[in-house]
Design a protein around this nucleic acid. Sequence first.
DNA 1: TCGGTGATACTCGTCTGCGAATACTCGTGG
DNA 2: CCACGAGTATTCGCAGACGAGTATCACCGA
Lengths: 210, 210
Amino acid sequence: MKRRKVGNMLGLAVLSAVLDRPRHPYEMAAVLKERGKDADMPIKWGSLYTVVANLEKHGFLEAVESRKDGGRPERTVYGITSAGREELEDWVRELVGTVEKEPPRFQAGLSMVGVLGPDQTIALLRQRIEQLTERIEAQRAMLEQLRPLLPRLFLVEVEYDLAMTEAEERWTHAFLGELTSGAVPGIDAWRRYHETGEIPDDVGELLEEE
Amino acid sequence: MKRRKVGNMLGLAVLSAVLDRPRHPYEMAAVLKERGKDADMPIKWGSLYTVVANLEKHGFLEAVESRKDGGRPERTVYGITSAGREELEDWVRELVGTVEKEPPRFQAGLSMVGVLGPDQTIALLRQRIEQLTERIEAQRAMLEQLRPLLPRLFLVEVEYDLAMTEAEERWTHAFLGELTSGAVPGIDAWRRYHETGEIPDDVGELLEEE
DNA sequence: TCGGTGATACTCGTCTGCGAATACTCGTGG
DNA sequence: CCACGAGTATTCGCAGACGAGTATCACCGA
């Protein structure tokens, strides 16, 4: 199992930021923010310098020059190496071409709604749906605004994100519907469990075996 | 901003594992695997003992007894405290009731397909769709098999996961369709960029401004 | 009874992620 | 002309994540 030398997603972002021309770290951060890349992956700017150093250590970046402008701390400008270009492409290939399960946190939550009881769960799902709806609207608006300005290719991630958010909203809505309409059996037992802490016999058995 | 004392998702799993009765760490791992919780969140078993220690440090768990069976290393049995029960509920409430953007890695990949060129991208998307389809079938089979055995509540996460995978498959399929049917303009420019590294003028301008 | 295999049960050392702090510079209004 | 806040640019400390390693037991087959 060959593991990526630099595992942090920020590394990918950095490589993409120096593809066209060498930059110093702070400038990388600037272009990445400008291009909205920070919306496409979880980026912690505190890790920037560490990650850049790691990329250099592994030969994906190289210091191109180190200028001292005025009295500032020395700024090192990094360029991408051919190994770096390689790595970038390979990384993207992996991200696009293979599915790896990365359960979203909501899924973890769902798998534990048992402890909340039905009433709280219903209230929370309502709340979540509201947030999802807002997000969808914001996203739609942004797409509308960007579509005439940018080639389609640059909008793909946003479209994907929107589609997924919509799917989640639909699913959650449907589930909520089932809960409130009483279509899900065992809600009373569930409420009793939450209030008293007693595990219904039939479920208790199930937990033993299997 | 009050941050969770123990941030690792494994912590949540551990709390849920000792809800019904005290257990020692290895046993927690056992029940969690048995209940398939490791499919609902990204769990690294190497972190188990660290996390348990942290949970104890913050008063969510307490050592109940410490038995020495035979010649084995001492096993410490931990029980959940009322603060722990609190924390568990609150955590689940947060997970269910609030949407936080956690862009999936595929999205990061999508936002960079530019570097791959259209032909590779198409091939990789095909590959991905294949994997998604497999996953969907596996998931459906599992649901079919489990539905008569478990109450609905215990299947919700699986249903959600399935729904999301289906949505992703649909979207990817549609996008692939657009790419192959030539409905997306600018594919030639894209191919040229990938082969020569030249940035088309119109795009170059766009990157400057905005 | 010997050795192999797999389950049980932990321990350790490394590396890294990242929040928070630091330090300098520039423009502006008082 | 100096105080100040907003931006620029980077460093640092250390908690904590996790892979890999360790050790014992139990069972089984040869």
